[in-house]
């Protein structure tokens, strides 16, 4: 696959999952935007998460048939604010507050002797279909990998900004388009007989996977949440290397090609470097310059851990019950 093979067209609008997403989608189709009250909405549920996800997508690639200018439509932004408030309030309620960033990082850097989670399942027992389900859902983030975090760049200054850009530069292939992580991810999708078109699996992706991405967009798009964005970034960069190694080993166990495993192989090595850079060149100077951000850095770390655990729980429970972890099944893998 070459870069020119990946379609750049905006994806179609998804199907609604309830009254909130129906209201947002109607609004984006130009049928009037009237968000119903959020009183009974599950802040982590499919309806609210899809509604919020669609509002945020206007800041990335947009949707086919929705004018680019709607990104700054005050009606959309007002509705988005309601959805964000509900999601953020739930996270603030469910994540214990703290301000000791060093202790938080130390805890993240200890590897359990008996690790658990989807990467362990996929390393040891998972089949190719479960790998495909995992990758299809993760595509909502990885086909725009590093983009939500790029929004924080102008909100930082000095050494922390330079450090964060060093890591982001590596995520974007360090100047080589074919090494961009989103491109390596698209190549893996093709190797797994998945469609690498941006947004292709939005309808299939359930709320737990969406919530991890909406959290990044929420923190990236609000300067007031810049500390939480850096915390989220740190949590991912510090924890992804061991899990990526397990995913590489799982793919090798299943005899999948190097094209399939290259994305995670790259992350074993890259995130070992990024961990060091995020701690030494992003967090340390950020907290020296703005010590008041410590509590939000901890919030960002803990909220991403909470959302990652919810996603992991959803995957493992679905697979344990022998069912798909997607909302709609994938097309079968073509014979090779």
């Amino acid at each position: 696959m070459t870069l020119t093979d990946v379609p750049v067209a905006a994806p179609p609008l998804p199907q609604a999952r309830g009254p909130l997403s129906a209201a947002v989608l109607a609004g984006l189709r130009g049928e009037g935007f009237a968000l119903p009250p959020l009183t009974d909405a599950d802040p982590y549920g499919d309806d609210l998460q899809l509604a919020l996800y669609c509002c945020y997508e206007l800041h990335y690639r947009g949707f086919a048939g929705v004018a680019d200018e709607r990104e700054w439509d005050p009606v959309v932004l007002t509705g988005r604010r309601e959805l964000e408030r509900a999601f953020l309030a739930a996270l603030r309620r469910d994540v214990p507050a703290g301000h000791d960033v060093a202790a938080e990082l130390d805890a993240l850097l200890v590897e359990p002797v008996e690790p658990a989670g989807p990467s362990v399942h996929l390393q040891r027992h998972g089949d190719v279909e479960q790998f495909r389900e995992y990758v299809a859902q993760r595509s909502l983030y990885h086909l725009k990998e590093a983009d939500p975090q790029a929004f924080v760049i102008p909100r930082l200054s000095g050494p922390a900004k330079a450090g964060l850009v060093t890591v982001e530069h590596d995520e974007y292939g360090a100047g080589r388009a074919e090494r961009m992580h989103e491109h390596l991810f698209a190549r893996m999708m093709v190797a797994l007989d998945l469609d690498p078109a941006y947004g292709r699996y939005l309808d299939a992706t359930p709320a737990p996977a969406l919530a991890e991405v909406t959290f990044m967009s929420l923190c990236g798009l609000h300067r007031a949440l810049r500390g939480a964005l850096v915390g989220q970034f740190a949590a991912v960069e510090l924890t992804s290397s061991p899990g990526s190694r397990r995913l590489v080993e799982g793919m090798q166990r299943l005899g999948l090609s190097a094209d399939a495993s290259e994305f995670y192989a790259e992350h074993v090595e890259a995130d070992a470097v990024h961990e060091q850079l995020v701690r030494r060149r992003v967090l340390a100077p950020l907290l020296a310059a703005e010590p008041a951000l410590a509590a939000d850095v901890v919030f960002g770390i803990r909220a991403s851990e909470l959302l990652a655990e919810r996603f992991a729980g959803h995957l493992l429970e679905s697979w344990r019950q022998g069912r798909s972890a997607l909302r709609t099944p994938l097309h079968p893998r073509s014979a090779r």
Binding site: V110, E111, S241, P242, V268, V273, Q276
Partner: peptide, 29 residues
Amino acid sequence: ERAVTALCTCRRTRRPPFCDTSHRRRSKP
């Protein structure tokens, strides 16, 4: 070709000569 390269010094890496975070402490469940 990275802007910064992490070279293993603990000799536990599975991707020598690069660090793969195998130096990390381990905890019991």
